[in-house]
């Protein structure tokens, strides 16, 4: 019996955003990554077009982090000692993008300086041809001190600068505007605040095809359903034509996962929880895939094995079933 699949008709589309610039475009990237453009909800291939696959950014840190699980550090090995080596390893592991997180202390334990942040950023750009996201520690004053010189030293690279938040976006947006970069706009799981920040950033004159939004989320078991609902609502609004919600979304699935007890703790947990490493990677992969299905265009991951597994999931989700 033939079954007719009901289809929604949408009037809006997610904006296309291109991260990175090749030499011809004023940068030094080997490739660029374009996300967005969808005219339907995630992976509803029968209903609209999804011109660009969701992509995987791999998080690296400007020096070997002392607050990361040793499961992660063991997996990356010596590469984690040096951001350039780490970026190369991430690229080999299958990253589409590199996300460089700047820790507020440097390798020597002293507060990070703008000079060392610029050095680390440039080292990563030289080591890998992938487009880059640079996220500062998340403290307004320090973030501005670091991101402005980074933006200037890498002018034209179309780096994504983060994190623009409602209390601290002006300086970061101005730095992106002046140096041909992009920004990531983060709000705390709230559709109204997400939209408001997009309006404020747009008001500063940064074209919205240089903005991605990070609606924040929680890991599996830690509020992912709230994050899911917010992302779904933003995406529905985008497809209904609300211009200020039509930005691609980034979520930090790895960061959220590696805060959870299930990923972090190997001892003193019920035996039924099984092998620690396998569980932690499963947690990151399941979190990331759920977020892809709620509309994420970029998932930021931490474990090398998660990269391959999420990539395989994206391959399957993007396979358009043959008609009939």
């Amino acid at each position: 019996m033939p079954v007719e699949i009901p289809k929604d008709t949408w009037t809006g589309a997610v904006r296309e955003v291109t991260i990175g610039a090749t030499a011809a475009e004023g940068g030094t990237r080997a490739t660029t990554v374009t996300i967005g453009g969808a005219t339907t909800m995630p992976f509803m291939h029968f209903e609209g077009s999804i011109p660009h696959r969701p992509v995987i950014a791999v998080e690296i840190v400007n020096h070997r982090p002392d607050d990361w699980s040793h499961l992660l550090l063991d997996a990356w090995g010596d590469a984690a000692n040096d951001p350039a080596a780490w970026a190369k390893a991430a690229e080999q592991a299958g990253a589409d993008l590199i996300q460089l997180s700047l820790n507020q202390t440097g390798a020597d334990g002293n507060p990070i300086t703008p000079e060392s942040a610029v050095t680390a950023t440039k080292a990563v750009l030289e080591a890998s041809g992938l487009p880059l996201l640079v996220f500062a520690p998340g403290q307004a004053e320090l973030d501005n001190e670091l991101l402005v010189p980074i933006a200037e030293a890498t002018k034209g690279e179309r780096i994504v600068l983060g994190i623009a938040e409602d209390k601290n976006y002006r300086t970061i947006v101005a730095a992106a505007l002046a140096n041909d970069h992009l920004v990531s706009a983060r709000t705390a799981m709230d559709v109204n605040l997400a939209k408001q920040l997009n309006i404020l950033i747009g008001d500063m004159g940064l074209p919205l095809d240089r903005v991605i939004m990070d609606p924040t989320t929680g890991a599996l078991g830690y509020g992912i359903e709230y994050g899911y609902s917010v992302m779904e609502r933003l995406r529905l609004a985008a497809l209904q034509g609300d211009a200020m919600t039509q930005l691609p979304m980034l979520v930090t699935a790895g960061y959220e996962t590696w805060k959870t007890k299930e990923a972090k703790v190997g001892e003193g947990v019920p035996q039924e929880w099984g092998d620690w490493t396998a569980r932690a990677i499963n947690w990151e992969v399941v979190t990331a895939v759920a977020l892809l299905e709620s509309g994420a265009d970029i998932v930021v991951l931490r474990h090398p094995e998660s990269i391959a597994r999420v990539r395989a999931a994206i391959d399957e989700l993007m396979a358009v079933p043959a008609a009939g």
């Binding site: 559709v191 109204n192 605040l193 939209k195 408001q196 997009n198 309006i199 404020l200 008001d203 609502r233 933003l234 609004a237 209904q240 609300d242 211009a243 200020m244 919600t245």
Partner: peptide
């Protein structure tokens, strides 16, 4: 509830 509220909704 046709358009998501934001404080600057009138500027959109």
């Amino acid at each position: 509830n046709r358009v998501i509220y934001a404080d600057s909704y009138l500027q959109q």
